[in-house]
Design a protein around this nucleic acid. Sequence first.
DNA 1: ACTCACATTTGTAGCGCTATAAACTGCGCC
DNA 2: GGCGCAGTTTATAGCGCTACAAATGTGAGT
Lengths: 395, 395
Amino acid sequence: MDRVTLRDVATRAGVSVMTVSNVVRGYRHVSPRMRERVQAAIDELGYRPNLSGRSLATGRSSVLALAVPDLRRPYFAELAHVFARVSTARGYRLLLEETGGTPEGERSVLRDLEAGIVDGVVIQPQALTAAELEGLRRDTPLVFVGEDPRPPTADQVAMDNVVAAEEALAHLVAIGRRRIGFLGHEIDSLSRPSELRIEGYRRGLERAGLLFDEALLVPRGQGDAVGAEQALGSALDAGLAVDGLLCRDDLAAVGALRALQLRGFAVPGDVAVIGWDDIEFAASTVPSLTSVAPDTRALGERALELLLERMDDPERPGRQVTVGHRIVARESAPARQPWSVPTEPSSSVIADRTASGSSTAESSARRSATGRELRTTSHAATFSPVADLGASGSS
Amino acid sequence: MDRVTLRDVATRAGVSVMTVSNVVRGYRHVSPRMRERVQAAIDELGYRPNLSGRSLATGRSSVLALAVPDLRRPYFAELAHVFARVSTARGYRLLLEETGGTPEGERSVLRDLEAGIVDGVVIQPQALTAAELEGLRRDTPLVFVGEDPRPPTADQVAMDNVVAAEEALAHLVAIGRRRIGFLGHEIDSLSRPSELRIEGYRRGLERAGLLFDEALLVPRGQGDAVGAEQALGSALDAGLAVDGLLCRDDLAAVGALRALQLRGFAVPGDVAVIGWDDIEFAASTVPSLTSVAPDTRALGERALELLLERMDDPERPGRQVTVGHRIVARESAPARQPWSVPTEPSSSVIADRTASGSSTAESSARRSATGRELRTTSHAATFSPVADLGASGSS
DNA sequence: ACTCACATTTGTAGCGCTATAAACTGCGCC
DNA sequence: GGCGCAGTTTATAGCGCTACAAATGTGAGT
């Protein structure tokens, strides 16, 4: 049983291939009778259009590519999820490419994806400079996501890292923290996100009248939770004293929680901790993690929009889009401190206790827990919450 | 600047298109001089072969598809990562498809991916029955991963859930647990993984001379950590008493840790907890999580091998491959109990303290922590550890 | 009846590539 | 010189689909 082709259907239905093609593509000017007849033949033969043929004829493939450093990082998995959803909704399939965050990986993606198999590419670069990216760019429409520098003529979507870090710092200050560290940046070459977040951290300190102290910057080795745990652990053992910690990402924050708790520091009692990315786990650590939440859904949606628009008009000038964020206050740095006299909240911060459904469990707990989730609004771009898109179960 | 085509290169080099094609594909019988000349033209023009054209001519696309329920679940992200790596290593690109774990999602994937755009599909079904899957199957080579039932004529790769659950239970028994619960299965329709894991749980109880008690099965609502936390929380508040807990997956285990700790139960002191999947976070929770670790790398590799073999010979009989697993013992259920007189370990369990690099940090801790990671070997299929494949940084 | 406007249907010519086999090279050998 | 042979190069015919334009049908208006 060979593949069923347009011609087979046409023969079966006794019409021309073009008519079948018209039916398949939903061309308007096909009479109902004809449409019905052709559809019957399609169903009988189980015809499926061959996308390679279509692609060759139209010059479009309806496939987009997303290139991220590593799918195993929850943030990228979330991004891929969102992008897959929005792409599918617009009739595109998704080719996934991992760059490994290396120059070769990013180069190979940009080089190979020009092969006419994808209509456009969304990439989160991490290793290549803007100049290199520009050199590799050809005529496949391209959108950059994330904060790393990109060619000025290209489109980019990112959140405002500086402002968000500044807000996170204000949050810590508002709950009385004065010795606030930054955990998780890179030792040798500062990544762009770290750079921007540290910049916001500095501005936040400044605005609060606190002094910047290089000793409170704790780099990590490996870019994972274990690396952060070890780095912070060593620093604490060496005498680091902080009462607040802004972490480069939630992975670092999770490592920080461990390092702190293993040493008997209470979180947030002794040290308040804020992470970044608001990964799903942030709600389930002990204590749950206050985190800077980028509007990942908006990020994915805007990236797709920019990409489609660029596919439409490759010559349009490059645009830079900023998506919203918010600070999701949970137990590791609650908006108010339940264990002490409430401090005056910062004027720009609005505490808003959300119903979480866990109140029953908590109310009868042997020891009381703090609220599951408190949100503070952000003054950045509008935030559209990531709706739960279904799916259950695991392996 | 239009796309450069084979013809352009041929004209430029003054040869036929076939010769250019031969050079591009690395055909043997091309003289060195000719190869050089053509290559020069290719480089000058920046020619990239159009994969749609190639695909149409050859009937193959060098694209494989992976369909999983939801990329946001760490297990699937890991699987996608592994599969992307091995596919790339074999010269294939990866199309990613999320089914949402719904019948429609799985149906649409199976239906659409027959469109000649992919050479083969690896799918982890979750909602469809074997009969439905068989009905949807056409001639695109297909490999199933995971435990869910699949058509008997198809290939499948999975770990041995029953044996692994039995081992996990033996582990809990070996450290003195007698009232062991199972957390996280589905309420209405039991998923196949849950079913098998509960079966292993029962066998483990039996083998240990313990009675199965329906009351110790705690289903969860939402298939995430929060759902598990709420479910276990309610059960505990209603009087559930356990000293050990086998969780359906690590997400459930993470939720369990929170539910237990918020109620003042010590883990593992009062309740030992074992998760499933050994996601990256398992090493960084407090306490770190003992978990059943499937050999995901082997899973991905074997799935690809089966797929390639089936692409080679679509008529070969369906095969069922079992990949290895191990129980990674961490703090939530250590191989020995550091807080009490060591119990006699089960004969099949070999404790093996691994160097983790965190000993320095821990040795100077204000309060001592238990070892980071203890591994118990499994008697199941050979385990090939998941090598770290690089990549660093986050958002 | 005839025309015109419009809707519907159909031939034809590629899209860029490769499979196939035919057409060339040389070159050694009878 | 002619022949066979292995190594190269090339002409041609599609792969399955769609763009385009041309051809056909249909009904209203005159």
